[in-house]
Design a protein around this nucleic acid. Structure first.
Length: 107
DNA sequence: AGTTTGACGCTCC
DNA sequence: CGGAGCGCCAAAC
């Protein structure tokens, strides 16, 4: 899966600073894959949990929520990491994208 | 090679 | 605001 698209996706995700998050759609767009948000999720899913190079935990859906349905505690893990980075979840487990969404400047 | 599935997003109701 | 429907596309069957 050494697709160029994946490389771009990882590059974008890697560029998300600590304490900030990005939506799948935004990452896809930034990676040159407009409308292929699903592909982004697929790419991240293929990542090993050890991939510290790619902060997949900083990627959430357009609602500012964690997508993982009920994978091996993945959702809980992601939330824990984000909270540890300073990201605040509201009572519904949602992130305030207006404040935490990372918008790369110069684009 | 056809079908199903899925870390998504947007529109409609 | 929540649920349903549809579009998108790669990987798994």
């Amino acid at each position: 899966m050494t697709s160029d698209a994946y490389v771009k996706i990882y590059a974008v995700v890697r560029g998300i600073p600590r304490g900030r998050v990005m939506t799948y759609g935004a990452v896809a767009r930034r990676a040159g894959l407009p409308g292929r948000a699903r592909q982004v999720g697929y790419a991240l899913h293929a990542l090993p949990s050890k991939a510290e190079d790619v902060p997949w935990q900083r990627v959430v859906n357009a609602e500012g929520r964690i997508s993982l349905a009920d994978w091996e505690g993945g959702a809980g893990l992601q939330r824990s990491i984000l909270e540890a980075e300073g990201v605040v979840f509201d009572r519904r487990g949602r992130i305030d994208l207006a404040c935490y969404e990372w918008r790369p400047s110069g684009d």
